[in-house]
Structure formats: structure tokens, C-alpha cells
């Protein structure tokens, strides 16, 4: 049967390849099926489109690994844009507006985290409520419409280049690296795994569970804010409903990437690759001329298959007992 890997690298290798192979297979298939896919233009397009989901997925994998979930991220993406638009229109400079936008999301994460840990309420329920709240605040700020965000400088984030690569790529990379560092190199990362497996055991080991939980949701919220900045910059608009549904795709990315929805273990690389798979799939199907809803349907089937597959692969192996 399966060999027990004797160190973490081999263990990592066990999880990651399955989703990597799927990604590679998809890339090859689309390259072959449609000529428009394998162009530099499309590649950059892919990166810009996928950045938002990938950034959110890095935050989501932390939340899910800790045994929780964050349903508010989609609404926070929209909120960021509206806050930026709102504040810019009132005279704030765009860099500051950006920071305010992200901080608002961090604050939302803080509130969610506090209610979850101190109030002892299911993360699903709290972030579900926060979804309504954040979306509504966004709608209120934007009067239900879209706020145009003028400014060449700001839109550079979404459409500009740095070292020949789209800026969203760099943002995503930095975000992923920060989360990676957080998970692997800091004590918090360990504690998150521990809490996700068994929060009681974790507290008996001396881990401050409440504090860690709050940090998790602050992180998730902040990353949603960063994603929101990228999104707003790409479309030069602040719209509260943009990003609706992102949370579910992020969760799907995390799950097909090998993280069980119950938490306790998680793979950042898997989540990132999972998000790539979804983005590539959507991009490829659109290039083939399929309508957006049909694309949705196929992505839906693909996701279900992906999750089933993930269950078989990741549950089958890695059982010590």
C-alpha cells in the first residue's frame, strides 16, 4: 500500500502532486483544444483573473485548517472596493484609500474572530452573518450602484506590470509567501493545525486558542481586503456585489487541494493549485465560447468530481493509526 513518508518533504510531495497533475492535464487539454489559450496575452489575463481567488484561497486554507471557515470573504471583496471609492471621492489619496479599504476588512475579521472565540459560536454562522453585514455596508456606501474609481495610478495595480509580469501576480506571490511563512515558520502556524485537530487538546497543551482563532479571521479578512484592492483596481470600480460567490470557490479550491473541510491539516500549495485549476477551467471554457452559466455548470460538476477525488486520495493515505 502506501509507504509512510519519513519526513515532511515527502509528505508534502504526497499531497501536492495529485492536484498538480490535474492542473497540468487541464493546461495541456486547453492548449490543444483552443489556439487562443496558449498565448502570452491569455496567460497574463489568466493571472489577473485568478489573482483574486488565489489570494482569498490562501486565507481560506488557514481558516479551514484551524477548524473554521470564512463565508464573508466575497462580501469583503466588494466592501473594499466601495470603501476605496467612497474615500477617494471624499478626497483621500488612493494609497491611503487602499490601506483604509484593507483595514476595514481586517476589522471585520477581528469582529468575526472575537464573536467566534468569545461567543463560542460556529464560524459558519458568524461569518454568514458578517457576509450580510459587510455586503450591506458596501451597498449602503455605494448607494447600490458602482462607484467609479478614477486614477491611472490606482488602476496600475490591476493592469500594470512589474518586471514584465502583471502586478497581480506579484501581489498573489507575496500574499502566498507571507501565509506560507506564517504557517510553517511561526508558532501560530503550528497552533492552527493543533486547534483544527482538537481544540481541547490544544488548550491543554498551553495554546491560547481564543487568541489564535482571532488571528486566523483577521488574516482571512485582511487577505480578502487585498484581493478586493486587486479587483477594484482591475475594473476601476467599487461595487459591493463584485466578488459574490468567491467564498465558495475559495472553499472548493482548498478542498480539492487536499485540505479536509474539518481541518486539522492543510496544504497551502494545494489550495493555491486548486484555485489555479478553477481559474484555468473557467478561462478555458470561456475561450471555447461557452456561456458563463454553462461554464458554471461544468465547473460545478468538475468541482464535485474534484472533491470526491480529493476524498479518495487524501483519506486513503496518511493514516498512521
Amino acid at each position: 500500500m502506501r509507504q509512510n513518508p519519513s519526513n515532511r518533504f515527502l509528505h508534502w510531495l504526497e499531497i501536492v502532486p495529485s492536484i498538480a497533475w490535474i492542473l497540468i492535464a487541464l493546461l495541456i487539454v486547453f492548449c490543444l483544444i483552443t489556439p487562443h489559450f496558449a498565448t502570452l496575452d491569455n496567460l497574463f489575463n489568466l493571472i489577473r483573473q485568478g489573482a483574486v481567488l488565489t489570494i482569498v484561497a490562501t486565507g481560506m486554507v488557514v481558516a479551514i485548517t484551524s477548524g473554521g471557515i470564512d463565508l464573508s470573504v466575497g462580501a469583503l471583496i466588494g466592501l473594499t472596493g466601495t470603501v476605496i471609492g467612497f474615500t477617494i471621492n471624499r478626497g483621500l489619496s488612493w494609497p491611503l484609500a487602499m490601506v483604509v479599504g484593507v483595514l476595514v476588512c481586517s476589522l471585520a475579521g477581528l469582529i468575526s474572530g472575537l464573536i467566534i472565540s468569545k461567543g463560542r459560536i460556529f464560524p459558519f454562522v458568524v461569518t454568514f452573518g458578517m457576509l450580510f453585514i459587510a455586503r450591506s455596508i458596501g451597498l449602503g456606501l455605494s448607494q447600490g450602484g458602482s462607484i467609479h474609481i478614477a486614477g491611472q495610478a490606482f488602476s496600475m495595480i490591476g493592469s500594470g506590470y512589474f518586471l514584465y509580469l502583471p502586478i497581480p501576480f506579484w501581489v498573489t506571490l507575496v500574499a502566498a509567501l507571507i501565509v506560507l511563512f506564517f504557517l510553517k515558520r511561526t508558532v501560530f502556524g503550528r497552533y492552527i493545525f493543533s486547534i483544527g485537530s482538537d481544540a481541547n487538546s490544544a488548550s491543554w497543551m498551553g495554546i491560547k486558542v481564543d487568541l489564535i482563532r482571532v488571528l486566523v479571521y483577521v488574516l482571512s479578512g485582511t487577505l480578502a481586503g487585498v484581493a478586493g484592492v486587486v479587483m477594484a483596481s482591475r475594473v476601476n470600480t467599487g461595487n459591493a456585489l463584485i466578488g459574490q460567490g468567491t467564498e465558495f470557490f475559495a472553499i472548493a479550491s482548498v478542498v480539492i487541494g487536499g485540505t479536509p473541510i474539518t481541518g486539522g491539516r492543510g496544504s497551502l500549495a494545494g489550495a493555491v493549485l486548486g484555485s489555479f485549476v478553477i481559474t484555468v477551467l473557467q478561462n478555458g471554457l470561456t475561450l471555447l465560447g461557452l456561456s458563463s452559466q454553462l461554464t458554471s455548470a461544468i465547473v460545478g460538476i468538475a468541482l464535485m468530481l474534484g472533491v470526491i477525488f480529493a476524498q479518495l486520495v487524501y483519506r486513503g493515505g496518511l493514516r498512521g493509526k
Binding site: F248, I251, A252, Q293, L294, T295, S296, A297, I298, V299, G300, I301, L303, M304, V307
Partner: peptide
């Protein structure tokens, strides 16, 4: 969620 997408497409 998967069936949501699926049925939506249908």
C-alpha cells in the same frame, strides 16, 4: 454547492 452550480447551468 456543487449541485447549485450544476443545476444553475441546466
Amino acid at each position: 454547492f456543487g449541485t447549485y452550480l450544476l443545476f444553475k447551468g441546466l
